[in-house]
Amino acid sequence: MAVIAIMTFLASLTLGSVLLVADTSASWQRDIARELTVQIRPEPGMDMDAATTAVQVVLLATPGVVSATPLDDAAANMLLSPWLGDLDLTALPVPRLIAVEIDLGSALDFAALEEAVERAVPQASLDDHRAWISRLAVMAGAMVTAGVAILALVLAATVLTVVFATRGAMTGNRHIIEVLHFVGASGSFIAGQFQRHFLRLGLIGAAIGGAIALVLFLLVGWSLRPDQVGAEADQFRVMFGTFNLGIWGYSLIVMLALAVAVLTALTSRFTVLRQLAAIDLLAPVDG
């Protein structure tokens, strides 16, 4: 029972982590795909305000562009401060950035938009974040694949544990099994007794492991709620969102616990039938 509880807990943690990574990755990709960035590189004697206005006019005149907002000096300082510290950037040739929000439902021609922006201001360049989206998708896919593989390994370890436990129980009760068979009990009947026993153990163990995992996810989600202030909470929210699995995620963990219990019972039954066939208990007893 303890082993099944531990395995269910680990499987639930893995499943919940996979769901969080997949959901967060999808959210990141939606956010990145909804935005473009135009960078205007400064040059000596260049009027940055006029260049910014010219690029902004081109962007807003393009179908599919919802907004084009230039980032002011304070926003630029906020973006650069993690790398450069609190410096006065007014004397530095810092590029001017324009955040562009696009309509995902529109068929925006990025190549034509980039050409129009560069034609208006040669020092401007457009970044559609495709490289970031591609890398993010690959990273998230690798993490999800690794999580599914770990989940499969945990379930395989659970099956092997039940197999060895069933064999041990049969060895310890061999004389009882022989008596049952002598009085006419079929292999299916004997396997059913083990199946019910291990189903009970599986239900209790899986319920304990799944409940602990659910409580853990709920506690972490509560500690990372949006009104919680702190550097660690902010970092976790950036990586995993609100750390909330939602009703569907919690339901999947419950279904996983039930699946572990059913898998435990079926594995026990199959093992008993194989062992009975191996020791030839299904043949009539002589004498």
Rank of each mutant, 00 (worst) to 15 (best):
L71Q: 09
L71F: 03
D72K: 05
D72Y: 07
D72V: 07
D72Q: 07
D73I: 11
A74V: 13
A75L: 07
A76F: 06
A76E: 10
A76P: 00
A76N: 13
N77E: 15
M78I: 11
L80E: 01
L80V: 03
L80Y: 02
S81Q: 15
S81T: 15
S81M: 13
P82Y: 07
P82K: 05
W83K: 08
D86A: 12
D86Q: 14
D86N: 13
L87T: 08
D88F: 07
D88L: 07
D88N: 14
A91V: 11
A91Q: 13
L92E: 11
L92F: 13
L92I: 10
L92T: 10
P93M: 07
P93D: 06
P95N: 08
P95C: 08
R96P: 02
R96G: 09
R96E: 09
L97F: 04
A99L: 12
V100A: 01
E101C: 00
E101M: 10
I102F: 01
L104H: 06
L104V: 03
L104T: 06
S106T: 12
A107F: 04
L108N: 08
L108V: 10
A111V: 13
A111S: 11
A112S: 09
A112L: 08
A112K: 06
L113D: 01
E114G: 15
A116E: 09
A120T: 04
A120P: 03
A120R: 00
A120V: 03
A120M: 04
V121N: 01
P122W: 04
P122T: 03
Q123N: 13
Q123H: 10
A124H: 05
S125N: 07
L126A: 00
D127V: 06
D127N: 14
D128Q: 03
H129R: 11
H129V: 06
R130E: 14
A131I: 08
A131F: 06
A131Q: 12
W132G: 03
S134R: 10
S134W: 05
R135Y: 06
R135H: 09
L136K: 00
A137M: 04
A137S: 13
A137R: 11
V138C: 01
V138G: 04
M139C: 04
M139D: 01
A140W: 01
G141L: 01
G141S: 02
A142E: 09
M143N: 02
V144G: 01
V144N: 00
T145G: 15
T145R: 12
A146S: 11
G147Y: 00
A149L: 13
A149Y: 03
I150L: 14
A152P: 01
A152S: 11
V154N: 06
V154I: 15
A157G: 15
A157P: 05
V159L: 11
T161K: 06
A165M: 12
T166F: 07
T166Y: 09
T166P: 10
R167F: 10
R167D: 12
R167Y: 11
G168N: 08
G168K: 05
A169Q: 14
A169I: 09
M170E: 02
T171Q: 14
G172F: 02
N173M: 12
R174N: 07
H175L: 15
H175G: 09
H175Q: 15
I176M: 13
I176R: 15
E178K: 07
E178N: 04
E178P: 02
E178C: 03
V179P: 02
V179D: 04
V179K: 03
L180N: 04
H181W: 11
H181K: 15
H181L: 10
